[in-house]
Amino acid sequence: MATISITQLFAQAALEVNGKKLENLKPETVISKLGLDSVAVMELVSYFEEKLSIRMPDEDLAKVQTINDLATLVKRLVPPGTEVGA
């Protein structure tokens, strides 16, 4: 099975949901510095949840700062055997 790249999926989500092209996105990118408002970020989260069939608890999401943090959270929630990378 191919590894899911959270960086790539994040960029794809931003483009498809918010029409925003995010360039030079890296695992260490701080999400709050991307110029997305809080509603847009929650829409991306909702997109992720649907695409990956997971639910991210709000208390865990509150701790997510970077793309890498998001990847760590997603890894914890996807079914066993699903490969996730930042």
Binding site: E16, E43, E49, E50
Partner: peptide, 13 residues
């Protein structure tokens, strides 16, 4: 916006 991006209006997972 998310429904449109996902290409469906199906209920949430």
């Amino acid at each position: 916006r998310v429904q449109k991006a996902l290409g469906s209006a199906a209920p949430q997972s």
